[in-house]
Write a protein that binds this DNA or RNA. Structure first.
Lengths: 165, 165
DNA sequence: TTATACCCGAACGATTTAGTCAACTAAATC
DNA sequence: GATTTAGTTGACTAAATCGTTCGGGTATAA
């Protein structure tokens, strides 16, 4: 798992779609306007998100993108994986480039770190980010504390989250 | 915090130094030979590691690099921070580029995610990686399980970690 | 004094990022 | 059916980063 700004753009855009998806498909032009991400870049990102099955698209007037799954069944890791092509991590891909005696420390080392970061980000759902975004951002510490309850099986919110826009 | 291969190279090299530091300074040429990383690239990385106070250097014949702190007081996060220049994360740096009403989701969002990843990697010490590297790599699962005990306040090992090399 | 090894910086190709442009297709609406 | 909306695709660009190569330094042990 690689962490760059690309994944952040994708997550930000997905939050936007999740927040404005109440009234039908969300156009990338709207996301672009709200999040200040270039339209064409969004097109590239959403092409990948669509091919990964995270969003669906509706063409023509009134069209746009919508989440393909409920936001509480979509994790940050899903989104990042979709847009950030996987890094090869091992540097000695499949080749026996590994060393004579102590063969490629990085192998198990980084794959395990990746596993951890992946499972961490996999525990944070889009729904949580949206909920967090709705309440008027408290201190960063509080946000952080709030984030650290991945709560594996997120109970679907009884009270519909209320799309005020 | 950004995760790229650059940080992995640095961590790998630091593990190598930690493992071979028993007999005095470790030359970058030796690290280069063992880890298959170009010498000049190592020089760049160790320049940063040195300026960050993670390693010390000895010039001249018989010289090389040594850890500036015990390996159990040095975390993976320390190393990555030292070599990976910080990503600006916020996209709207200091400017009030933030939006009209809902101003820059990414701000608190990603800073909190960064905090988490940082604290996760900050809990893994170089000493743990070295110890893990010494035992003949079991299954990845076992390695992974072993890694997930960050042990926040690392107690200084009564028994010196034993640098047999 | 010479070989060793750290130090420094410039330059390079490859890849990735982020953005732009242009042409196309599907669908809704007038 | 013509037009408009909006997704779809591809090529192309500037900038940054990655990893490397080269060429020179300087300090120090032998």
């Amino acid at each position: 798992m690689r962490l760059t700004t690309k994944g952040r753009f994708a997550v930000t855009a997905m939050i936007d779609v999740a927040m404005h998806g109440g009234e039908g498909p969300v156009t990338l032009a709207a996301v672009s306007g709200r999040q200040h991400i270039s339209l064409s870049y969004l097109e590239q990102l959403f092409g990948k998100l669509r091919r990964s099955g995270l969003v669906g698209s509706v063409r023509g007037p009134g069209g746009g993108y919508h989440l393909a799954k409920p936001s509480d069944q979509m994790s940050v890791a899903d989104i990042i994986i979709a847009v950030d092509e996987p890094i090869d991590a091992t540097q000695c891909g499949g080749r026996e480039n590994c060393h004579d005696d102590r063969r490629c420390m990085t192998h198990e080392l980084w794959s395990s770190l990746n596993e951890h970061i992946f499972s961490f980000l996999g525990g944070i759902t889009l729904a949580e980010l949206v909920r967090q975004q709705r309440q008027p951002a408290p201190t960063e510490v509080a946000v952080m504390k709030d984030l650290r309850l991945p709560s594996a099986g997120v109970p679907p919110p009884k009270v519909p989250v209320g799309e005020p826009v």
